[in-house]
Write a protein that binds this DNA or RNA. Structure first.
Lengths: 193, 193
DNA sequence: TAGATAGTAGACAGACCTGTCTCATCACCT
DNA sequence: AGGTGATGAGACAGGTCTGTCTACTATCTA
């Protein structure tokens, strides 16, 4: 059973598609372009993915999984919630500065597939909700659940907003201001009342 | 010179295109669909707009202008900056609840036209930067310019983030949390240090 | 050795895309 | 009445899209 080389091609298509979708958007990136860039026959792609939409879902799930693993490792580090939040913002800072940063693929997916019943929309929403849940878990260590839920929403909004501003070329100020606001908001939610 | 009916057709195309782009995205919405829905001949559209891209820019500029007018009126109201911010969040709250809310068209434009040199990208970025500028003007009444710039960025990020969460069906909690965070952040930036 | 599995190359269908062109029509103004 | 300009209806070109099909090859396995 040559399961390894088989998965290799499949994975290679996913990763190539990721790069192209990120750069050019979902609708504007055609199948032909993907298979050409991945150097793979069309039938190879269609054997692994029944349709373009399902390839997109796969790409999103793959990226979500990678990010989730990072959050997993973070969760088990023996540092304070504030430090964890700080680390997440540092990740984003580095991401924003990377050579071909083009904004958040999940946000773009929500933009291009506006129907909430569409599988692509669902996959993107899944990631965002997952991140929110992670943030909530982190700050639940220092505040009650009710307040943590609201605070997590605020953190997520700051992150999403910063990502958008970064896409408009204001990465540095955006991440700095967002981090400051996030930490001061957590501090405020932590202490009183 | 029948300038009025001529502009009518043109404006009607812009507004129809707006509705369709909002609902279905830019690439996924074809010219044929737009002219069918607007009940207008194809040549009528192409006489007014040299290309689809320029129609998109026109749609964005039109919506940006409408929003800007609203902000203009707000600027001249004799209320506190905090009340102005509160009003802007109330507008968003109502918007999020409107029957066919599909997220921010400008953010979607940034997602679909990722090239910063593309006219559509520029038009969308223009609107976001304009809004940020407006927010900054509002809070400059109660804090020095330097701090106001950062605070305006934070407010914008919260608004953008809330819009994204609203698109995922969490409109109510998103706008509530964002407003609370925004006002508490302004309060913190206003007073000390 | 025979078969299963995965991949390659490319033609192909059918739909849709943007943008152009032609010709008829209609309203308005002089 | 005649001229002018905006519009309507639709054919058309040339390209691109997704997804299917066939025929061929390589590799691993029973």
């Amino acid at each position: 059973m040559t399961s390894s080389p088989a998965s290799d091609k499949r994975q290679h298509v996913v990763e190539t598609a990721y790069t192209l979708f990120k750069r050019g958007g979902f609708h504007a990136t055609g199948i032909d372009r993907i298979i050409a860039e991945a150097d793979v026959a069309k039938m190879t792609m269609y054997r692994h993915f029944p349709s373009k939409d399902e390839l997109i879902v796969e790409v999103l799930d793959y990226r979500a999984m990678r990010f989730d693993r990072q959050l997993d490792r973070l969760a088990h580090e023996g540092i304070t919630p504030e430090q964890k939040i700080g680390k997440i913002f540092s990740w984003h800072e580095r991401w924003f500065r990377s050579p071909d940063f083009h904004g958040c693929l999940f946000a773009h997916a929500l933009a291009e597939f506006g129907d909430p019943r569409h599988p692509v929309f669902k996959a993107a929403a899944r990631q965002k909700n997952g991140l929110k849940q992670r943030l909530q878990s982190i700050i639940e260590e220092v505040m009650p659940r009710g307040r943590a839920e609201s605070a997590a929403a605020v953190l997520l909004m700051l992150i999403e907003g910063a990502t958008l501003m970064a896409q408009m070329g204001q990465a540095d100020t955006a991440i700095r201001d967002a981090r400051k606001a996030a930490l001061s908001f957590v501090a405020a939610s932590r202490g009183p009342q």
